[in-house]
């Protein structure tokens, strides 16, 4: 589609857009190919060399258990990316559908759904997450569904607000007058017009979800050891930081570069779609 192509071109025109897209693509490619390119087995221990600093053989040094930090950092984003990419997709799909429906229906349906959303937003996500993980375990599927559900609640609000801006327009009225069904109106008429806002929202949600996932791992609820994960690595090596900073530094750089990349990409996307443009006075 030429519209998508044009947007992509606009995103890539700004320096921040280039950097953001490059970082995101780098991390995704890395997550896919890392099992074949890592220099060591991520679980191989070397007791003699624990807490050793960076060397030519071990670029990132070794951690508490004498495992290669560089290897583990390369692999550490795999599960996080898998969970958050699908989690974001789930959040966007169900959040948009419910939000659009709520905004389109209006009246009591809308009122009821918005109050339900408010109620959920009032509960801290982290507590809900821990609750779910405590009862259903921390498998990838459970994490995906839970994160997707929780982060979709915010999407409902955005999709509803965007829909409210569209429902009063005559083309929606025209579609109703033609006798189109509700879902055709939502998906074929309204969705293309609010797509831009949703795309930017998706990018933002993704970066937040990534932080939440890493926080979970940091707390010990996300990824089960010994699977390498950035949040977990930071948590484990944290206490030795004054002594051996590298096992913390490397995953930190990896995680923050990905999050910064996503944010830069989202910003450039918003700019190129004209969503952050300030209206100027005509006279």
């Amino acid at each position: 589609m030429s519209g998508a192509e044009q947007t992509m071109r606009l995103v890539l025109r700004s320096t921040s857009g280039k950097v953001g897209v490059a970082l995101v693509i780098f991390h995704i490619v890395l997550a896919i190919v890392s099992p074949w390119v890592v220099p060591y087995d991520f679980n191989a221990q070397s007791e003699v060399l624990e807490h050793m600093g960076p060397s030519l053989a071990h670029w990132g040094g070794l951690d508490t258990l004498g495992r290669d930090v560089f290897t583990r950092t390369l692999l550490g984003g795999r599960e996080a990316l898998l969970v958050t990419i699908f989690g974001t997709a789930i959040a966007m799909v169900w959040g948009s559908l419910f939000g659009m429906f709520s905004g389109f229906k209006g009246g009591r349906t809308d009122e009821f759904m918005m109050r339900a959303v408010d109620t959920f937003l009032a509960i801290p996500f982290m507590i809900l997450l821990l609750l779910v993980i405590a009862s259903f375990g921390n498998s990838v599927i459970v994490l995906m569904l839970t994160l997707g559900f929780l982060y979709g609640i915010g999407v409902i609000r955005l999709a509803r607000a965007a829909t409210l801006g569209e429902v009063t327009k005559d083309y929606v009225l025209a579609a109703q007058a033609r006798g189109e069904s509700v879902w055709v109106i939502l998906l074929a008429e309204i969705l293309p017009n609010i797509r831009d806002a949703l795309m930017v929202e998706a990018a933002m949600r993704w970066s937040w979800m990534l932080l939440a996932f890493s926080a979970l791992s940091f707390l010990g609820f996300g990824v089960t050891p010994p699977t390498p994960d950035w949040g977990l690595m930071i948590a484990n090596a944290r206490i030795y930081m004054p002594l051996a900073p590298w096992p913390v530094l490397l995953p930190m750089i990896a995680l923050s570069s990905l999050i910064i990349g996503i944010n830069l990409m989202a910003d450039a996307l918003a700019k190129s779609l004209g969503l952050d443009r300030v209206q100027r006075m005509p006279l």
């Binding site: 005559d170 083309y171 009225l173 025209a174 008429e189 293309p192 017009n193």
Partner: peptide, 19 residues
């Protein structure tokens, strides 16, 4: 439905800009 149809006041609004 097909026997009675309506044309709206403002074509800017009654046509979906993304269609």
């Amino acid at each position: 439905l097909s026997k009675i149809q309506m044309v709206f006041q403002n074509p800017d609004a009654s046509l979906n800009p993304r269609q």
